[in-house]
Deep mutational scan, measured.
Amino acid sequence: MASQGTKRSYEQMETDGERQNATEIRASVGKMIDGIGRFYIQMCTELKLSDYEGRLIQNSLTIERMVLSAFDERRNKYLEEHPSAGKDPKKTGGPIYKRVDRKWMRELVLYDKEEIRRIWRQANNGDDATAGLTHMMIWHSNLNDTTYQRTRALVRTGMDPRMCSLMQGSTLPRRSGAAGAAVKGVGTMVMELIRMIKRGINDRNFWRGENGRKTRSAYERMCNILKGKFQTAAQRAMMDQVRESRNPGNAEIEDLIFLARSALILRGSVAHKSCLPACVYGPAVASGYDFEKEGYSLVGIDPFKLLQNSQVYSLIRPNENPAHKSQLVWMACNSAAFEDLRVLSFIRGTKVSPRGKLSTRGVQIASNENMDAMESSTLELRSRYWAIRTRSGGNTNQQRASAGQISVQPAFSVQRNLPFDKPTIMAAFTGNTEGRTSDMRAEIIRMMEGAKPEEMSFQGRGVFELSDERAANPIVPSFDMSNEGSYFFGDNAEEYDN
């Protein structure tokens, strides 16, 4: 993207840094990872977990959730003011799984939030270390993106479920800051804005008074975040219109849905970061690795190297396929839920299948599930090659597409044709070009129609051997075009429920 120079890199967003050079960025990201790792080690000690239990991804998720809940100030305040039966607002906890007599047992633990905050700050040299908290939120978000298709949420806001490739980060909490905003897809931002506008339509006082002023500035800020994701002048001009509207209503909703559809071809720039579970960072720190000293990046080879040398386990339900569970977590670790499966298959070195073909449910185990038949197995999170994460949407291309997802959002900077089903997408653009945004709409449609099938995206960008740390010898991959490109292809993934 041309304006790259004016933006802070995501590592800076990730670490609240002012302008830093590459070495400083690597050190501050490393410091953040160190903090998460030290916190995780301490929690495993508190909970008396064995090494194996500490490497269980379900335990990692519970521990991450506990610290996120302990620092969720708004919710904590709300819980104190609106006490609900049987919930102690000062405590947080969740299921911890232990191996007892050759069987997995679930144990519900409860801790004072104050105590968890103390352990977290102690692991982070006394700081609140917001960057580390956001990092864990993005890992949870990436896992949700890989596990669930947001059909219901899309339909509720009037969008087409086939636009799911635009929904990265749709389950990120509001408090995820600049680093969170960077990884949100165009569809996620559109959905947040539509929800806001709908509230304004239904509630006369939404934009009024002292609160209304705050609401208005939040609305304009979200519009600017979305505008910054678009790469064409016409899309940005249309966002200006939406932002400046005196009284946002149905016309703005129409414009936003139009823009979301246009992003299936004229893709937005959305950041991709490899955020790993805390149970990967903990053992690495415990083994003596100093992330701050060595430096770390979320968008280069580092996460690949770390996963190459990590042992992570997962509980497996009786009829689940461990290899499929591994694929789910591998995609989440690489922030690749909406990437082209052919690119992923090449990088991973084994075939990556669409969601609907995987015999696996989510990673988390519900409290009512029976533990008797639970097994555990090693997650295979290694890769054959590594590639640089991208934040450009890439230019655009036609490809055989599917009944489910009709476009992709690249996660890796790797040369390819970008699949999208042009006739299906263009069919949504018939007729409606009147109104105050008509010239911009016409211009956007013209650009979409001009998108050429034979153009290559990320020209000359390749993948790298894991021994090639400096990215000196790019390998331009070859793809098996007979395979499906979309992950949520004609899909039956479970729906995400809060």
Results as ranks from 00 to 15, higher is better:
Ile425Thr: 06
Arg391Lys: 01
Lys214Ser: 00
Thr232Trp: 10
Val343Asp: 13
Leu256Trp: 08
Gly37Asn: 10
Thr92Lys: 11
Glu80Val: 03
Glu80Tyr: 02
Glu244Pro: 01
Ile445Gly: 09
Val329Tyr: 10
Val476Pro: 04
Gly212Met: 06
Thr92Cys: 03
Ala218Tyr: 09
Val270His: 07
Ala182Glu: 06
Asp101Lys: 02
Met136Lys: 14
Ala373Cys: 01
Ala131Arg: 00
Phe291Lys: 08
Glu18Cys: 13
Asn397His: 12
Pro453Val: 01
Pro277Trp: 10
Glu18Ser: 03
Leu56Val: 13
Asp51Thr: 00
Thr232Asp: 10
Leu226Cys: 11
Phe429Arg: 05
Pro474Leu: 14
Gly86Tyr: 00
Arg361Ser: 08
Val270Ile: 05
Ala131Asp: 05
Thr45Asn: 02
Thr350Pro: 06
Thr157Pro: 01
Phe464Cys: 03
Ile253Leu: 02
Thr378Asp: 09
Glu18Ala: 00
Ile475Cys: 01
Met167Cys: 03
Ile347Glu: 09
Gln12Val: 00
Val285Ile: 14
Arg216Tyr: 10
Pro89Lys: 03
Arg74Tyr: 08
Leu47Thr: 15
Ser84Phe: 01
Arg216Ala: 02
Pro354Tyr: 05
Trp330Asn: 09
Leu264Asp: 09
Ser486Arg: 10
Ile25Lys: 01
Glu14Asp: 02
His135Pro: 05
Glu114Ser: 01
Ile347Gly: 13
Asp255Leu: 13
Lys452Asp: 09
Leu358Pro: 13
Ser377Glu: 13
Ala234Cys: 02
Cys223Ala: 07
Met371Gly: 06
Gly209Val: 06
Tyr385Asp: 12
Phe291Asn: 08
Asp439Val: 00
Arg121Ala: 00
Ile63Trp: 06
Gln409Lys: 03
Ala284Asn: 09
Asp112Val: 08
Tyr281Arg: 13
Gln42Thr: 05
Gly490Cys: 11
Asp480Lys: 15
Gly158Met: 07
Arg204Asp: 12
Ala179Val: 13
Gln459Leu: 00
Gln241Ser: 02
Ser478Asp: 11
Gln42Tyr: 07
Phe258Gln: 07
Asn395Gln: 13
Met13Trp: 10
Thr188Pro: 15
Ser345Phe: 10
Ser297Arg: 08
Lys103Val: 15
Asp439Ala: 12
Tyr40Arg: 13
Met189Glu: 04
Glu115Trp: 11
Arg156Lys: 05
